[in-house]
Amino acid sequence: MPKICLVLRLKLFPIQKKYGTVRKALKEGYIITVKHNFMSETETHEDKGGESTVYELGYHLVPSLGEDDLALRVTELQKAITALGGSVISEGQPQSTTLAYQMRKMRNGRWDKYDTALFGWVRFEAPASAVVELKETLEHDEYLIRHLLIKLDAVALAPEPVRAPRTKSTEVATEPKELEKKQEEEEGGEVSEEELDKQIEQLIQ
């Protein structure tokens, strides 16, 4: 049975230096793959610009907006997102909140001060290029007091896990693992040393 894949990056660790560990890993039955060109991997990572990621936009709207105006502002925000190639996943309707501290915004040539605001949020999926443009439009929005655009990771998007109740005694849980380990060690010992040397030589080539 193949176990975890051990990836060696030759640029970082020349295989000769790691001879001991490679040998040990082979003995324990790991499958080893060698990446000769580590730099090419980072290049492919940068190419991901076209793919879309999930973002969350939180915003404070001016509290003086009426109900109709408020709905209009929200739909306009959604339009701005969809127009740039994004798609709305979920949203929280703006609700009146008291701010923890006074905020101010330049409107019509003077600073307007706000103690309350309408706080709402939108979760959406969009390509990275669209987000840059979206930021630009948000900054020039008259009715937005403040906004926050964050990228959401996999943890944030994953549904809340349902957990099984904990077992009271931990001893039962640990025993089988230890047994497995012992068995693995015994199995690993069967590989002859000549074979190991051959495998390592193949890896270097």
Binding site: G58, T97, A100, Y101, R146
Partner: peptide, 10 residues
């Protein structure tokens, strides 16, 4: 983030 958005005081 919450402080910036005025949800929590600094």
């Amino acid at each position: 983030n919450a402080r910036f958005m005025g949800l929590i005081p600094y």
